[in-house]
Design a binder for these strands. Sequence first.
DNA 1: GATGAATGAGCTTTCATTCAT
DNA 2: GATGAATGAAAGCTCATTCAT
Lengths: 255, 255, 255, 255
Amino acid sequence: MTGKTRKTRKPPGSPGTGPDKLTSAASTDGTGATKPEAGPNPVARSESRLTAPPPAGSPERSPENPRSSEAILETAATLFSAQGYRQTDVQQIADRLGIGKGTIYRQFPTKENLFLATVDRIIGQLTRYIDRRAEAKPDPFDRVAEGISAFLAYFDENPGAVELLLLERAEFRHRNTPTYLEYNETNAAPWRRLLLDLMRAGRLREMPPERIIDLLHNALYGTIFINHFAGRRKPLREQAADLIDIVFRGILPRD
Amino acid sequence: MTGKTRKTRKPPGSPGTGPDKLTSAASTDGTGATKPEAGPNPVARSESRLTAPPPAGSPERSPENPRSSEAILETAATLFSAQGYRQTDVQQIADRLGIGKGTIYRQFPTKENLFLATVDRIIGQLTRYIDRRAEAKPDPFDRVAEGISAFLAYFDENPGAVELLLLERAEFRHRNTPTYLEYNETNAAPWRRLLLDLMRAGRLREMPPERIIDLLHNALYGTIFINHFAGRRKPLREQAADLIDIVFRGILPRD
Amino acid sequence: MTGKTRKTRKPPGSPGTGPDKLTSAASTDGTGATKPEAGPNPVARSESRLTAPPPAGSPERSPENPRSSEAILETAATLFSAQGYRQTDVQQIADRLGIGKGTIYRQFPTKENLFLATVDRIIGQLTRYIDRRAEAKPDPFDRVAEGISAFLAYFDENPGAVELLLLERAEFRHRNTPTYLEYNETNAAPWRRLLLDLMRAGRLREMPPERIIDLLHNALYGTIFINHFAGRRKPLREQAADLIDIVFRGILPRD
Amino acid sequence: MTGKTRKTRKPPGSPGTGPDKLTSAASTDGTGATKPEAGPNPVARSESRLTAPPPAGSPERSPENPRSSEAILETAATLFSAQGYRQTDVQQIADRLGIGKGTIYRQFPTKENLFLATVDRIIGQLTRYIDRRAEAKPDPFDRVAEGISAFLAYFDENPGAVELLLLERAEFRHRNTPTYLEYNETNAAPWRRLLLDLMRAGRLREMPPERIIDLLHNALYGTIFINHFAGRRKPLREQAADLIDIVFRGILPRD
DNA sequence: GATGAATGAGCTTTCATTCAT
DNA sequence: GATGAATGAAAGCTCATTCAT
């Protein structure tokens, strides 16, 4: 560990983004700045992103730069999710990018590190995507519904992301809490507030908001896993609508 | 001198069950023969199973026979779920059983094969456990609720089973449909019938029963995954109750 | 370290030899059983050694068995001493023996381990060789002289042994005391006794015997190193004679 | 972000010596100009050398110039002797000096080259140190004894030097004659002359002077190696005295 | 049938050296 | 000149699978 050139694990949402305050769109006031990274298919889009093109002479910033950590993470994500962690050789990633294996190891000291950075990046994208879409809805009900839809949409459009989440758990069970559960802990608060406000206003049954949040969380993760494993059988829009309908109205008759 | 681990300690899990007809307890008549494998903790109990010891001359059937495929699958399940698929080597399994590696390879031609057989066994246990518990409830509502509870209870008491399900998917993404989804396809029919009956009787809102089944399925799998990953935060009983409450009654006020 | 088949480092002088009590030939009584392994060129001879040929059906014992640890150590010694530790690929050793790399790793869990076993084996051979030759001389003076000659002869006939000693130190400086110094600690006592007897008999100047032992030790190691590095310029016999002459009589005139 | 070790800490050692004429102090006339590098601890002292700072405009000569080959060799010597040749990577040396790896490669075309230059520098220091101390003794006997003492003192005070000598041999066995043996070839002549003079004067037994030189050479190298490997057990002064005593007077009684 | 020694493809990681900036 | 990002050959070690005993 003496004089080696080593970079440590990149924080989530890495590329060139500034401080990555994983805010939530559920703030009760309905305000929120739209962040530029989001979009229906953030992962795919990130390929051609670029609000402002880098100054001509800056190869590091170029999205085509196959040596940027962005490019590496993207390719790594693709291969890991397509083939699994063990089945993916670091050499393959390098080959696909047309760069040397050493270049990857220069930025990510181990394969494990590379993989984990890949997952972190996904979580950052997911978070920002949900927040951006939910923030746009002023009405609290709409906001909850939009959050649900956005979550499903993200994974629908980034099928590899589901794989990555699974792989993280399967290969690195030792990591105390998988990355994507941290998201939940950090971001549940604004949603809880929002639900409490609705209850206070008599628009929802009185009950501990955790009960709702947990159910949604579980149902959403269950949905993406099942969707992914079995192949979705219903259009996404319909799935979101069904979930919202049952959760809001229940399955008992309204007398 | 060899350094081999030669323990014969039996891990928890697995009865010496016979052929596994994956029936469902949701038959509308409410009848169902109780099968012997079930119980609050089917896996743990299986350790002391055995109403009648096998006929003396049948070494293959003996639970102590570490060369039986039952014993092999049991040990394999324990090690796979504790360490992961790649991290577990066949030698370890053999060592733990005190048998030769070749003996395992004679029964399971590849490691993959062994692993998959391990998962199949779990699914069989789960199915029989749910059926047995649900069948015991004559009232259709109770039966649905009991099915939910049984599902959660099974995984609560067999944490390794969740790992196994994950591992199957993470390591063998090529398998078209993971084992545990087949369960659903095969066994959904009786539940669908049961739900339709309830709707016809006006006890449930009219809606396509798939909508309910899918939500439950998703929520249940989501629940066990999240429980397992993050450590359960609520007692199982409460979790089941919350799920049943919201699904049945919804979160909107009843005015 | 769980269920892997692993053998740990072999003690020095391993092959089929019984308990390896590294006795010294300097016992003042002049008695000593001749051990069978020794000879003018023990390493080379060991190739064709074999007091009693193994029973026909015992491939493990066969000296031609390229998979025996003896054969592996011998080939390893040859290559390590010819090329150095780092420059020698385990694959090379396997190739030279016509066996698989895994076979080597099965007996020696790491390359370092293999190397160290190689050195231990040399030290065992050296010790036994010196003892055997010295024991044969009844007169104490002759015994000292014979010990000196035997030491030089051993390394003269096993040039690789010198390399190995050096390599051990160069590559594994962390090993507290290199193997070949342990020899000295263990075996100095009988020599010390022998020198004291000579002094008491008035056949040597009175002085602490350590002074003589240390000088001899240093001069002998210096000699083999220099011989080896620079290519010997004098016949061995002459070198031993010179050393004995000067050490016994000094360089001052006897007036 | 890079994790590079960028320390500029200077290791002990190395004057800014000029060209190294490897003269010998044993010239029979007893004359010899004292050279400035010498001293009881030449390496350590060199740290504070510098009576007069170099002319302002000479950055190459500046001892603080971490890019000078002197500084590079000094740091290289420290790291090589502390960690071994293979274990030391060029990046580490550059980091320690706070310079770029390319800068080292401009002065030393390969790592091997750098290492060998490091050893050559040590030999030059040793030679000059011995010569300087021996030259100061007018009496031939004293001069021999002083040469012995100086040799031991040098390595005693520069333990890294022993490592370096070993490493040279261990890693570069192909180099026909190791650097430090060349010293002997070049410098033996004056010592031989000195011994012959003593014999002619009847102050030493008549014998080929090589016999004495070789013994001393071997005993001295043996001594430093053993000292270094095992940890010296006697004070240096005593070791030198013992060696001189036995070599001069022998171990036989003086009748 | 049971065993476990033997095999070698496969994969991670290191680091000397180059060369564009 | 100085730099350090990039490269890729090289080597240690693992473990599924085979098969002679």
